[in-house]
């Protein structure tokens, strides 16, 4: 039993990493990873929202009628995001100014709605909380990994501590938008290379996405498969 619970945490970090394996939450991953400190702030904020919303949705899973499931989840998630937003504004104003619009946009981060729909609505409270924790850690780890690469090459620092800037000129493009796409692409390629069964990740990607169902309607019509 305890093994199973540990699995709920660890699966999110490597095997089902939300960013690199399930390819969810790409927008904040690309946007705020210009500095390692931003990644920590974003990761922690999203993790708190993820744990709380998973817990509440799991608690209410028997009361919420199927028809209004999605609006109910969105309201709960938006509530927690607003609370986190107010706390950040009050106690960490610098984080608020660096994350800017991406802080309220945690609402539409597919990781959170995806976990609510795929996991919390079908499982008991404790596994749901652990699932949220694991996914949150996985999200933070991926953000951190990406931001360290981008900050190191693009600015010559890590956590604002000079590392490379004394030896070489920083390669600016890494902290500009194109660098975000490029580093993310390389990281996904590495994650694919390291994992044994590549096809499995493609399936996971659609199953983990809250829009998977409508997406497949589109792809049926046009005969394309998404991502």
């Amino acid at each position: 039993m305890s093994n199973k619970l540990t699995y709920q945490i660890t699966k999110g970090i490597i095997k089902e990493n939300p960013v690199l394996r399930l390819v969810l939450g790409t927008c904040p991953t690309l946007a705020i990873t210009t500095a390692a400190s931003n990644a920590i702030g974003m990761g922690v904020a999203a993790t708190i929202v993820l744990i709380c919303s998973n817990a509440v949705i799991s608690m209410l899973r028997k009361f919420i009628p199927d028809k209004v499931r999605i609006p109910a989840y969105i309201t709960i998630i938006a509530g927690f995001v607003s609370i986190v937003q107010m706390l950040v504004k009050a106690f960490a104003p610098e984080l608020n100014s660096t994350l800017g619009i991406y802080l309220p946009l945690i609402v539409v981060n597919c990781i959170i709605l995806g976990r609510a729909e795929m996991f919390a609505s079908k499982n008991k409270v404790l596994p749901s909380v652990l699932d949220g924790l694991g996914m949150g850690i996985g999200f933070t780890a991926a953000l951190l990994c990406m931001s360290i690469i981008r900050e190191l090459f693009g600015n010559g620092t890590i956590f604002s501590i000079p590392i490379l800037s004394n030896f070489i000129d920083p390669i600016l493009i890494f902290i500009l938008p194109p660098g975000g796409f490029f580093v993310f692409g390389i990281l996904v390629a590495i994650a694919n290379k390291l994992s044994d069964n590549k096809d499995n990740s493609q399936k996971n990607s659609c199953a983990g996405c809250p829009r998977g169902k409508s997406c497949s309607i589109v792809s049926d019509k046009e005969g394309t498969c998404n991502v």
Binding site: G179, F181, F182, F184, G185, I186, V188, A189, V227
Partner: peptide, 8 residues
């Protein structure tokens, strides 16, 4: 991966 690099 190649899609992301093209986007870059």
């Amino acid at each position: 991966p190649i899609t992301l690099i093209a986007a870059s």
